[in-house]
């Protein structure tokens, strides 16, 4: 790895200032499980890393049944799935947080980092989109909020401007009869990158779908919020036929490529299979919620 400067920020203001000084040549460091690999492999070249782990606000995990969940951007995955109240309220988010890497990666890597890394395959991103999560951003110009589905702009790129950092991710409290699920397909059973990932959520009124969100990983340059696929189910009964129609709409929303992890045809096929399975699981959870 090339020489680099390391700054451990103590406050959001300090982090923003330190990052702004270096522009594109500086990036935040949380768990480091992506950026250290990228720096070592020469895929990113930076002059400065600004460590977020000593900033209290970025390390808070708070959950309240009425106001919902707030995940500090540097909170490692294990804290999210290790919190009994969070795990019980957000099983669909836990699906994603508990399958990134292995236990060692989950001990460091954060959901915030997964989002900021902006990989098309980021597992937590479709789950966050399905949960209508919002990114809280702080920067030299003040604070702003961006829905997670609008956060990633290109592979490895986000809406964050020079000096801006992700402070926290806010996930609304689940409505009554809300259910969500994230599933992915990988050739192995662990330690792999999603060939396709699908996050789905819905709110049920009896067997009728009153809200539905579907998001996809590894099928386009950025995680895809498949609005038409979700809309295809809203107002309809949660039947096999309607689920299949939504799965086909999800397939239509994707622009997959062929690479070492799978062919475009296979990915399209998998979107159909996994969307159906994710919806079925979300329905099951909604009924139990």
């Amino acid at each position: 790895m090339r020489p680099i400067e390391y700054v451990a920020a103590k406050t959001v203001q300090e982090a923003v200032k330190s990052l702004a000084e270096k522009g594109d040549a500086a990036r935040p460091l949380a768990g480091g499980t992506d950026i250290i690999v990228q720096l070592r492999g020469g895929r990113r070249q930076l002059d400065r890393l600004v460590d977020m782990k000593a900033i209290p606000e970025l390390n808070e995990l708070t959950y309240n049944a009425s106001s919902g969940l707030r995940i500090g951007a540097a909170v490692p995955c294990y804290r999210v799935y290790g919190d009994a109240a969070v795990a019980s309220a957000y099983p669909g988010l836990i699906d994603a947080a508990s399958l990134i890497g292995g236990i060692q990666i989950q001990g460091r890597g954060s959901i915030g980092g997964n989002l900021c890394n902006a990989a098309p395959s980021g597992d937590t991103i479709p789950a966050l989109i399905a949960h209508s999560a919002v990114a809280e951003i702080a920067g030299p110009g003040g604070n702003r909020e961006v829905p997670v589905e609008d956060f990633c702009t290109a592979p490895g790129r986000t809406v964050l401007q020079s000096g801006e950092i992700l402070v926290a991710i806010r996930v609304p409290a689940p409505a009554a009869h809300f259910g969500a699920c994230y599933i992915r397909f990988i050739p192995r059973n662990e330690m792999d990158i999603a060939v396709v990932g699908v996050g789905a959520s819905m709110v049920l009124d009896g067997n009728k779908v009153t809200a539905c969100r579907i998001a996809l990983a590894s099928v386009a340059p950025i995680p895809v919020y498949a609005t038409a696929a979700g809309a295809a189910l809203v107002g309809k009964e949660a039947t096999e036929e309607n689920i299949n129609a939504a799965s086909e709409a999800a397939q239509a929303a994707a622009t997959p490529i062929s690479d070492m992890r799978g062919t475009a045809e296979y990915r399209t096929h998998l979107i159909g299979v996994l969307t159906r399975r994710a919806l079925q699981s979300a329905i099951q959870r909604a009924k139990e919620a």
């Binding site: 050739p187 192995r188 059973n189 330690m191 990158i193």
Partner: peptide, 29 residues
């Protein structure tokens, strides 16, 4: 048999030269 391979592009570049993408069996497999 199931997963391991050198995945080459048409220029002879191996695209999966890491344990992540080469995929030897893990304990869960």
């Amino acid at each position: 048999a199931l997963n391991e391979e050198y995945f080459y592009d048409d220029k002879g570049q191996m695209l999966n030269s890491s344990y992540l993408d080469y995929r030897v069996p893990t304990m869960l497999d």
